[in-house]
Every structure is written in C-alpha cells, then in structure tokens.
C-alpha cells in the first residue's frame, strides 16, 4: 500500500526528474568520457568507458605552447576583477534609480535598458579602433592587454545586472532609509551603511553570475588578446577545435573539464544563495 501510494504520488516526479537529469548530464558525460580517452576524437564507439588514459590531460598540461595554467589564471583574474567592479557600479546605479528622486529618471532608465539591446557585436570595430588609439599613448591599458579588455567589459557594468539588483533594492523596506534620513544621514551614508551591508548576499550572487558571464566571453577576448600568454581559457581552448587543420576534441574536453570544475563546484556550493539572488529581482517581499 505504501508503495502504491508512493507510486501514484511520487513516482512520476522521480520519472521526470530522472529524464531531465539524463538530458542535463548527457553532454557533460561526453566531456568526461572524451577527456579520459586515448584518442583525440569525439567519436563514440561505446558509451561506456573503454579504457582510461591521461593522454589528453598530458597533452594539455605538458605542452609548452599550451600555457593552460596561464590561460586559467588570466580568465580568473579578468572575471574576478570585472565582476567585483561591475557589481559595485551596478549596485550604485540600482540604488540611485530605486531611492533617489531626480529629473529624467524614467527616461534615463529606459535609455539604459535600450542601449543594452544594441547588437554590441557590431560595434566591435569601433571598440577595436578606440582601444587601439589608447594603446598608442597608454600601452598598459590599450589593445592587446588584459587591462584594456577589462575596461571594455566594464563598459556594460552599469546596465547588465540592473534587473537583478533593482528588484533586490526595491525589496529592502524603504522605512529603513527614511529612519536613517530622519537621523540626518546623507544618501551616501545610507548607501554605505545600510544598503550595502543588507545587500551583500545578493551582491555576492550577482558577482558570481557576472564572473561566469565574463568567463564565457569569447569574441572580444579572441580579438583583443593575441599573445598566448595573455589569452583567456575560452579563447585558448577554442583553438583546439577550430584549428585550420584538425580538431583535437580530447585536449579540448580535458581542458573544459578542468576549467569548468572550479566554477561548477562554486556554483553548486552557493546554489541556495543563487536561487535567492536570481529570484530577488522578481519576488518582492
């Protein structure tokens, strides 16, 4: 009887969950399978492991022309810096949009939302030539440098996460601000002393999402950074499968696995906060 009840109420849930898990895991399983194969092809003879080999990891980690660790640390540094600074800028904007009164507020927020909808890939040439001019007098933040790329990424910092942030700001009771204002606090003080501490869990989540977003960026990074020692992991690994001559899925899979692992672990360990953060924008208290 208990089984029957379970079968009627819960089994379909488990069935759906199993199916979806299979869908979610299939490509990931292929990455794992391919990275531990002996050959570099993505071809599947069998879906079961037919052998265990570290060839692909060796060719990834010991090849002097493949500075895997450098790529990885470049990506992490770029993404970390961009995410922290952009969250900071975004939070300030969201706070001001939510709590301050000023003329043209509605127009400016609409403008901000619209600008983001411009197909940015097409402005690539213009960005390229601007950064190139910068390079002429400030070589450390111009074209071909990590610093320059970071600046370009920060260009969108104000708008990108504003949806998530604004929802959260709105959800903080305005009474708190008003109380502080009555006590004579300036907007800056309210921002630093009340808003930021309250928002820190959400900011951390937005920061993480922004980190992943930056980590994923490909087109700009591939155009901006030519020196292999400056490249990001996405650009570096793409080289394995976009070669003019042959595709090396093995090392690519091995690299993807190593590169994704820390992010996946981070993501899973923070999933509770991420869910809260993602929904804060929509679900107001």
């Amino acid at each position: 009887m208990i089984f029957l009840k379970w079968f009627l109420t819960k089994s379909w849930r488990h069935a759906i969950a199993w199916a979806v898990c299979f869908f979610a895991l299939f490509p990931l399983y292929m990455i794992v399978l391919t990275s531990f194969k002996k050959t570099t092809s993505l071809q599947v003879g069998s879906f079961l492991p037919t052998g265990f080999s570290l060839t692909n990891f060796n060719s990834l980690l010991t090849n002097p022309t493949v500075p895997f660790y450098t790529w990885m640390s470049n990506s992490v540094i770029i993404a970390a810096f961009v995410s922290v600074v952009s969250v900071f800028i975004g939070a300030a904007s969201a706070f001001a949009f939510s709590r301050l009164r000023f003329r043209g507020k509605k127009a400016s927020i609409q403008l901000l939302l619209l600008i983001q909808m411009f197909p940015a890939v097409l402005a690539l040439s213009a960005v390229y030539s601007i950064m190139d001019r910068v390079h002429a007098f400030a070589p450390s933040i111009g074209l071909g440098t990590i610093g320059g790329l970071v600046l370009v990424y920060l260009g969108g910092a104000m708008g990108v996460n504003i949806w998530l942030l604004k929802g959260f700001v709105d959800s903080i009771p305005i009474e708190l601000d008003e109380a502080a204002r009555v006590d004579g606090a300036s907007p800056m003080q309210i921002y630093w002393r009340i808003f930021l501490p309250l928002a820190s869990p959400v900011l951390a989540v937005v920061c993480l999402l922004s980190f992943i977003g930056t980590f994923n960026e490909y087109i700009l990074a591939s155009l901006f950074l030519n020196d292999p020692s400056q490249q990001t992991i996405a650009v570096g690994l793409h080289g394995f499968i976009s070669g003019q001559f042959a595709t090396n899925w093995g090392p690519f899979a091995a690299g993807s696995l190593l590169a994704s692992l820390p992010i996946v672990v981070l993501f899973l360990s923070l999933q509770k906060y991420i869910v809260n953060g993602l929904t804060a924008g929509a679900v107001k208290g």
């Binding site: 979610a24 990931l28 292929m30 599947v44 994923n216 793409h238 993807s256 994704s260 992010i263 899973l268």
Partner: peptide, 30 residues
C-alpha cells in the same frame, strides 16, 4: 536532482556549445 539539473547552467556555456557542436555531428556525433 537539483544539483544535477543546474549543472548545465553552472557549466561555462561557451564550452557546452562547442561540445554540443561535436555531439550533433551527423556521422560521428553522440
């Protein structure tokens, strides 16, 4: 379940897309 289901979101999408490209190959794709 939840941990598995959010894996595709946690995985850097750029790599997932490229892997999918290989998996959808007509002759050899998974």
């Amino acid at each position: 379940y939840r941990s598995i289901i959010i894996l595709p979101y946690a995985m850097p999408s750029i790599m997932s897309i490229m892997i999918w490209g290989g998996m959808l190959n007509t002759d050899f794709g998974a």
